[in-house]
């Protein structure tokens, strides 16, 4: 029972991070219909910036995270302006290749600047606490609460502010949004910034319990894709729900099935889903 509770909590932590990364991916997909393979690289850069700000500039963990959010957000915007914007009328295969190009570049760059070794990130929240008989680190609790706070904030922004609503409007109907006078460039830039910021938050939160290395984004991004396919490409609640479902499945699978193959769970899940429903679970039927 205690093991189960422990694993459920682990699932909650992993799921929170997955949800954050998947949210960014799904927002970008909703707006521009680009599967942004470079999103995992943004996640990785986010981890590194926070780490470097702490070790080189001596910033506090939280401050370092803020810097990371800004840097990665801007990097994401830069990507949109320099690459995806010029490709907006091209066949879809070109977006994908361009995104892969960026991914390869950012990974090589990280390895060039920061080396290939796995690095540990310290955290001021390393204490161990007991909650309901469970032994938890403060960092894990922080991950869960911070992620939920970010999601609530994002939800409030998208639903209650004018700018947020334009993002939703554009995700639903691009031409329509243009017709009613929404500045689609501005919305795209903003969306990419948010996506980058979410990736940075996710990476910074999880790095103290995992490790920072150039390939750290690989599995996460792929799982984020699985999540948004499960949750419906472009759907925000879908990304959150999918993130937690995958988090729980993985942590339970690792305990009760096989720790070696836990990373396979997500991919097998996706392959099963797409084999049965080639357009994803929540595709609009008919056409």
């Amino acid at each position: 029972m205690e093991l189960l509770m422990q694993q459920l909590f682990n699932g909650l932590t992993i799921g929170s991070v997955y949800a954050l990364v998947a949210l960014g991916l799904t927002l970008v997909y909703g707006i521009l219909h680009i599967p942004n393979f470079a999103h995992g690289a943004l996640y990785m850069v986010g981890g590194y910036i926070t780490l470097i700000m702490m070790t080189e500039a001596g910033l506090h963990y939280i401050l370092a995270m803020v810097v990371s959010i800004c840097v990665v957000g801007l990097l994401s915007v830069l990507m949109e302006r320099l690459v995806f914007y010029p490709l907006r009328h091209s066949p879809p295969i070109q977006d994908k290749v361009a995104a892969i190009g960026i991914l390869l570049f950012l990974e090589a760059l990280a390895q060039f600047i920061w080396g290939a070794d796995y690095r540990q990130m310290s955290t001021p929240f390393g204490q161990v606490v007991e909650v309901f008989g469970l032994t938890l680190t403060l960092q894990r609790i922080l991950i869960v609460f911070a992620a939920i706070a970010v999601m609530i904030l994002l939800y409030w922004f998208l639903k209650k502010t004018f700018t947020g609503r334009t993002i939703i409007a554009m995700a639903q109907n691009r031409e329509g949004a243009q017709l009613v006078g929404i500045n689609t460039h501005k919305v795209a830039i903003l969306t990419f910034f948010i996506a980058g910021a979410l990736a940075a938050i996710g990476a910074s939160l999880t790095s103290p319990i995992n490790l920072v290395f150039p390939g750290m984004g690989h599995l996460v991004i792929l799982k984020a894709f699985v999540i948004i396919i499960i949750g419906g490409m472009g759907s925000i609640p879908g990304a959150i729900l999918g993130g937690y479902i995958l988090g729980f499945t993985e942590s339970l699978g690792a305990t009760y099935l096989s720790a070696d193959y836990k990373d396979i769970i997500a991919f097998v899940l996706l392959i099963l889903i797409l084999s049965i429903k080639p357009q994803g679970i929540f595709s609009k039927g008919g056409v």
């Binding site: 792929l222 894709f225 396979i264 996706l270 797409l274 084999s275 080639p278 357009q279």
Partner: peptide
Amino acid sequence: LFALRTKEHFFAIYTLCVGYIIYLVIDK
């Protein structure tokens, strides 16, 4: 037979996952 039921982005993601599964199986 299964992968080709998907199109465009879905196909790319599907095959990326297939690639990972092949890697993980070989590795483990």
